[in-house]
Design a protein around this nucleic acid. Structure first.
Lengths: 173, 173
DNA sequence: CAGCGACTATTCACCCGGTGAATAGTGGCG
DNA sequence: CGCCACTATTCACCGGGTGAATAGTCGCTG
C-alpha cells in the first residue's frame, strides 16, 4: 500500500500516513510508528530510497521514492490475483463456534440475535454515509464494500440461527 | 478461542492445536509455536493454569485448565457483540485503490476481471464442499460463511467495474 | 526577548500473533 | 542397538500494531 502511494511521487513519512488515511477513509488509520518502521523495512530491502531533504515551514523532512526494484515489486503485486477465501478468518465465526462449545443452544441463539441487531444498525449507518450529498466516490465505494460484507454476515447469521440446535448437537457428540 | 476450547475440559498444548484444527476445519491451522506462546501469555495473565502432568504412551505432557478469571474473561467475551465492520480491512480493496492510483483505468479493469474469475472459481469449489455427501455441519457452516463473503466480494467487484472510469478520474483529480 | 502552545517529523520500546525449525522423549520394529 | 515415526514443547525471528516520547519550527503574547 505504501509502495502504491509512493508510486504517485516521493513523500516523507508523515505525509504518507496522511495520504493513506485520506485515500482510504474507512480503513484503519496508520500509526506513525508503523509508517516509519515499514519505510525502514522497505529501504532495507531496496524497494525505496531517500530522495531528498526538505525544510519548509516546519522541521527537516526526508522524502522517500520508489526504486526500480520497488516499482517492479509493486507491478508484480498488482498483477497477481488475491487467493479468494483461502481460510475462514473471522472473529464472528470463531465466537459462534465457542458459544456452541461452551454454552447451551439458547445462549448461542441470544448471542446471534444481539449480533444481528448490531449488524443491522451498522448497515443503516453505512447506508446513510453513502447517500449523503457530500459523499465522495471514495466514501461510496468503501461503504459499498462494508455493506456487502455486513449483508453477507447477516445472511450467515440467519441460516446459522436456523441450524443452532443441529449444530449444537453435532458439536457435543 | 483457546479459552473456549479449554472450557470444555483441560488439555495440553499439542492436543489444543489438534482440537482447534478439528473444530474449525476451514480456519488457518494453528502453529504449535503459537499455541504454546499463547498458553504462556494466558498463564502469565492468570487465565489458565497447569492442571496436571501425564505420561501415557508418549512423552510427558502438561495439561492446562481455565482459572476462574479465565472463565470470567471468556464469559465476558461471549457476552459482547463484535463491532460490525469498524474498518474496511481488505487486501482486495487496498489493491484496487492502488491499481487506480498507479495504473490506468483499463489496467484496473483487467485486474478486477481476473479477480472476479478467481472468486467465481472458488465459489464453485466451496459449493461442491458443502454439497458433498460426507459434509459435516462444521464444513457446511464454514463453507456458507465463505460463500456469503465471496458473494459480497463479487457484488462489490461488479459495481466497482461499472465505476472504474469515474473513480479513476476522482483519484487523479 | 522568552515562553508557550500548536503543528510537524521521526524514533523508541513494547506487545502479539504468525512462522519454521530445532530439541527431546517414547514406542515399535528389524 | 539404531532408526523412524509420533508426540510434546521450545526457540529465534519477523511484521504489524500501539502509545508515548523526542525534537524542531512557527506564531503569538506579555
Amino acid at each position: 500500500m505504501l509502495l502504491g502511494l509512493l508510486a504517485a511521487g516521493s513523500r516523507h513519512g508523515y505525509e504518507l500516513k496522511r495520504a493513506h488515511d485520506e485515500r482510504l477513509p474507512r480503513a484503519r488509520p496508520l500509526a506513525f510508528g508503523q509508517v516509519y518502521s515499514t519505510l525502514g523495512r522497505l529501504q532495507r530491502d531496496g524497494l525505496v530510497a531517500p530522495s531528498g531533504q526538505e525544510r519548509e515551514g516546519g522541521p527537516e523532512r526526508t522524502a522517500y521514492a520508489l526504486t526500480a526494484d520497488g516499482r517492479a515489486a509493486l507491478e508484480r503485486w498488482l498483477a497477481e490475483v488475491e487467493p479468494p477465501m483461502p481460510y475462514v478468518a473471522s472473529t464472528l465465526f470463531a465466537k459462534v463456534v465457542v458459544a456452541l462449545l461452551v454454552a447451551d443452544a439458547d445462549r448461542a441463539r441470544d448471542y446471534l440475535v444481539a449480533q444481528r441487531q448490531a449488524h443491522t444498525e451498522r448497515l443503516r449507518e453505512l447506508t446513510a454515509v453513502k447517500t449523503a450529498p457530500s459523499a465522495s466516490l471514495d466514501d461510496i465505494v468503501a461503504a459499498d464494500f462494508a455493506i456487502a460484507h455486513l449483508d453477507a454476515d447477516l445472511r450467515w447469521l440467519r441460516t446459522t440461527l436456523d441450524r443452532v440446535a443441529d449444530w449444537h448437537r453435532e458439536v457435543h457428540s
